[in-house]
Amino acid sequence: MVDAKPLLKIENLVKHYPAPGHGLDKSRVVRAVDEVSFTLHRGETLGIVGESGCGKSTLARTLLRLVEPTSGKVLFNGEDLVGLSSKEMRARRCQLQMIFQDPFASLNPRMTVGQILSEPWVIFPDILPRAEWKERIWYLLTRVGLSADDASRYPHQFSGGQRQRIGIARALSVNPEVIVCDEPFSALDVSIQAQVINLLEDIQQQFGLSYVIIAHDLSVIRHCSDRVAVMYLGNIVEIGTWEQIYGNPLHPYTQALLSAMPEVRTKDRKERIILEGEVPSPLNPPSGCRFRTRCHRAQPDCAQNKPELRVRAQSHQCACIHIHD
């Protein structure tokens, strides 16, 4: 299932925002995404988890260049997207698509569903000849579980789950290879969430898609990811297959997150690790390991050395200097 050569390779991606109220002082920045690297293989689903404000959404937008990265590389099929001019980038947008968090804000209220789905074909007439538009819209709508008559309706006439399906159909309309999903389930009811997850899995198999799914819900990520990356304050602290992350979490932050996951089990329940304090400000992150201020295993030397992501086992990487296995 997984090729040797990655489809998408992110290298040291950085996004710094100028700090609010410090317009002239360029050194004061919000380090939303700092030195993030990972790979995504064809047909694979990479889940990215982390608490609010850790830079997950910025990462999603940066790797699609909806937000310009400060530095780093986004290698898609070996080609660096960051170096492309905006015109060259536009021509490659079809290959990378995005599904958005809020289904009520991600569809233009003034366009019918048909117009929304056919817009990419208006922009790139080569994708599909006009004669086939109607049929293709019908196909896409039925594929995501809506009816063909829905093409002439407006977004406000649909429920949240239906709108998210329209968003999925829009992403599919350009035959992408990678779809980045930014919290695609968090605005949906639990029952609808399950349907949308199943839909995403069905179309992944059918179209051979690769997903980057961003979520804060660990159980959702476990259900749909092949590999999982854990983010904390702009850094990836641990990345591995879901068996590794959920079965043998190495990083103290991952351990704390997993211990907070609600479980039905009553016996041999592991001790809960309760994180102390607040997430530090990305304006002024702690020195060394960024998690050390809240870590239950922090040592004095954590403040000096910035931990790198290091391979601990087959495809299992963790950024903590106190893990020795």
Partner: peptide, 24 residues
């Protein structure tokens, strides 16, 4: 997000202004 989505499908700035911002 719908303007972001338009950008993600490759809409030009002119198109975003005319088709997505102006009608609203």
């Amino acid at each position: 997000q719908f303007v972001e989505a338009a950008r993600a499908i490759g809409a030009s700035n002119a198109r975003i202004m005319l088709r997505h911002i102006l009608p609203n």
